[in-house]
């Protein structure tokens, strides 16, 4: 799509947001939620309560405009943390700083590239989080709070930052294809204020009762118009990601890997990945041998392999491990990232 089209979309969102705000008779400063039967608590009390359920995450990055921090949201009472899938998580264990200043280590349970979500877990920390209530209906014009560690302002036991806002639109991100760095193309809540600052990704979008209604997305900017879009992923999307990750996760336990006698091997596939020099070297395709299986399947140089048969590939090693479980005669499916696109590829021997 062209640049003007993008402008129109954003302006339309803005306009819809404003129009609906007026329509719903929302006067800022005096939030009146007549539809709800829940007693409204004061905002500072509400902020106190949600702080316990939002965590600060620290991992890889810190150079070239890549932040080494982001935000995460605790889900349930088993120590699960939902966050944005990003380069921050490219570490062996992600540092989690809880509301009380405790520093914990989280393992990455799995990632869901299509929704750009990741699920982490901290063990035995006694942390309890939000419930994922996908039944909450979110309407444009609704007032919301964003809670995140934007700009990495909070450290230790300091509070995550809180911002007020209004859901301007519930709309798909598809219009942004090819313009932005978003892999996710589905439904989002578009927010009228700058919630998606550096480090805010993975933070909580909450309603005026302190209930989780979305997970703050990444920073998205139209490269031509220079407009920043602020959005959050709805809970049904988040729930789907979590389900997929937990389902996929059950088969990735390294102990239970069953290698086969005649597995797929990189050389046989005609696939050369970039040299394995790091603890977790990303599985980037370096070369494709002409006429090979990889070539016929449509894999291209510079593709980043994210999933193989829906199992998460976080490094070259993990790809080789998965290949060792696949019989040479069987076909398998890859999910690769090519530029800003996600592509599913059937590899047929």
């Amino acid at each position: 799509m062209t640049r003007p089209a993008n402008c129109v979309f954003v302006l339309l969102c803005l306009w819809v947001g404003i129009a609906l705000t007026i329509e719903n008779n929302l006067v800022f400063g005096a939030p009146i939620d007549q539809s709800s039967t829940t007693v409204l608590m004061s905002h500072d009390t509400l902020v106190d309560r949600v702080q316990e359920k939002v965590v600060k995450l620290f991992g890889a990055g810190g150079a070239k405009g890549l932040e080494s921090y982001q935000s995460g949201v605790l889900i349930g009472s088993d120590g699960y943390i939902l966050t944005s899938w990003s380069t921050v998580l490219d570490v062996t264990s992600v540092r989690v700083v809880a509301y009380d200043g405790r520093r914990l280590n989280a393992t990455v349970v799995g990632v869901d590239p299509p929704n750009e979500m990741a699920l982490l877990k901290v063990d035995d920390a006694g942390l309890s989080g939000f419930e994922l209530d996908t039944s909450l209906a979110i309407r444009p014009g609704q007032r919301v709070f964003g809670v995140s560690n934007l700009f990495g302002i909070a450290t230790g036991n300091e509070y995550c930052s809180v911002q007020k806002g209004v859901v301007m639109a519930v709309a798909p991100l598809t219009q942004r294809r090819g313009k932005t760095k978003s892999l996710y193309q589905g439904k989002v809540y578009v927010i009228d204020v700058m919630t998606n600052n550096p480090g805010a990704a993975g933070g909580a979008l909450i309603d005026m009762q302190g209930r989780l209604i979305g997970i703050l997305g990444k920073e998205i900017r139209d490269e031509q118009a220079g407009i920043w879009l602020n959005y959050a992923l709805p809970l049904d999307v988040v729930q789907a990601s979590m389900d997929r990750i937990l389902k996929g996760n059950t088969s990735v336990e390294s102990e239970s890997i069953k290698t086969v006698d005649k597995p797929h091997r990189l050389a046989d596939l005609g696939l050369t990945l970039i040299p394995d020099v790091l603890a977790k070297t990303p599985a980037f395709v370096d070369q494709i041998r002409k006429g090979s299986i990889a070539d016929h399947s449509g894999i291209q140089t510079n593709d980043l392999i994210l999933l193989a048969n829906d199992q998460r590939i976080d490094s070259r090693k993990s790809f080789e491990r998965v290949l060792s479980t696949l019989n040479r005669a069987d076909s398998f499916e890859l999910l690769v990232q090519r530029g800003q696109e996600l592509i599913r590829i059937q590899v047929r021997p």
Binding site: F28, T45, V47, F145, Y159, K164
Partner: peptide
């Protein structure tokens, strides 16, 4: 405390040519 409402008054972008301050409204974020 975080979560309380507040407002700023001042002269952003030198808008106050008639010397009436601009009010912007918001939340204490932290």
């Amino acid at each position: 405390r975080a979560g309380q409402w507040c407002f700023a008054a001042g002269n952003p972008f030198v808008l106050a040519t008639n010397l009436q301050p601009t009010i912007t409204y918001g939340l204490v974020s932290g």
